[in-house]
Design a binder for these strands. Sequence first.
DNA 1: TCATAACCCGAGTAATTATTCGGATATACT
DNA 2: AGTATATCCGAATAATTACTCGGGTTATGA
Lengths: 217, 217
Amino acid sequence: MTKNTQVIDFSMRKQPVQQRSKALVAALLDATARLLVTIGYIAITTNKVAEKAGVGIGSLYEYFPNKESLVAALIERNSMEIVKKIQLGMEQALQKPHEDALRFWLEKMVNALDERRDEVRVVIFEVPFLRQMPLLETMPKTLMNVAFSAHKRANDRVQFTYPKAAVYHLTSMVSAAIINMVVHPPQHIPRKILLDELTELILRAMEGASLGNPGIS
Amino acid sequence: MTKNTQVIDFSMRKQPVQQRSKALVAALLDATARLLVTIGYIAITTNKVAEKAGVGIGSLYEYFPNKESLVAALIERNSMEIVKKIQLGMEQALQKPHEDALRFWLEKMVNALDERRDEVRVVIFEVPFLRQMPLLETMPKTLMNVAFSAHKRANDRVQFTYPKAAVYHLTSMVSAAIINMVVHPPQHIPRKILLDELTELILRAMEGASLGNPGIS
DNA sequence: TCATAACCCGAGTAATTATTCGGATATACT
DNA sequence: AGTATATCCGAATAATTACTCGGGTTATGA
């Protein structure tokens, strides 16, 4: 009845306009990223970030009201880059013949995430307010819309009993599989095989019939 | 080079032996659970937990060295209950005819998680050290072993190009799908349909051929 | 070149949260 | 009944972390 899950202030206090201040903010975000992967989210403090960035603590508070906004800004900056790459990969994939498209796109996504492996891991598993961020809240819905329209386009090939439910599950399953194979890869299984098998699983789930094995053996 | 991702002390300081102290510890864990779902993990403090439990702060520190150990103990206690139910469901499922077993087991798991919906959500998405807990670290591996031996038993029906990779992916995908449909269910889709479609997707992924539609329409 | 605005800073303080410790009470045991 | 042990407690203190504020520096642009 009292105050529930308090709302967090993610917004920056002001935007940097000159070059030096932009560089300062960038330095802060870079330091945040490095600290995230080295000491983990819990141990991060505003003072440590400022020190690591070689910046006065006062300067930090010129732009960020707290630790959360700092991490949030970093996530926004870097996940945007990843999202762009994934969208680009999608566009390229759509140019390919249908039986190669999925595998191609999966690989693009995995590679995009893999470039920031550690960061992705910490952000996904340690940042407690991730789901409260506007960006991350809408992301699954966007993904689902993309998946759903893709499904409609492929309507002649793919038929589900309950299309919306199928798209919903496929979205969460594919996201999970990809993130998992990047941040918690199994021992002794080459990535190529993981990608081949994942492609096969998804294609079978979607079409009910294998497209054949693109790999060896 | 300095100290990395600090190791967290999860262990209790001492075990309660008398009834009253056991009740006290239980009260602390219950209070922790209630606070987790009402104010979220970040906002929890040892003092708030003690107060909510109607217990002196000193008593709390008799048994728990810090906030993390408190939450960890709660997770251990409650996830054990869930795991038991899931294992029971698995045993029951294995009694069923093959084409009903999966659907049955999925439903059991979903129901087990759903009883503690909010708790599960907060624990999975807000507890930053979840992956550092011994229990949660081994859980995916256990799940994979179960899945793998189940696969071997069904060897005549299910064939994968790369069995280990397939089991690895299926494990992460099914876990994700189940957790997701409990903590972030889509609007306007009844649970029955979600379960039907998920069953169908997984069966197709595993067998390459639909077992037919168990639902209506 | 001078005024104005943007920027940078860190010692010092406020606010929060963690944690102890000595003393009081309850239970177990002989 | 008496002693040892387990338990409970919370005011007081320590430790951590957040955050401000006044004063100095650098860019802008009229």
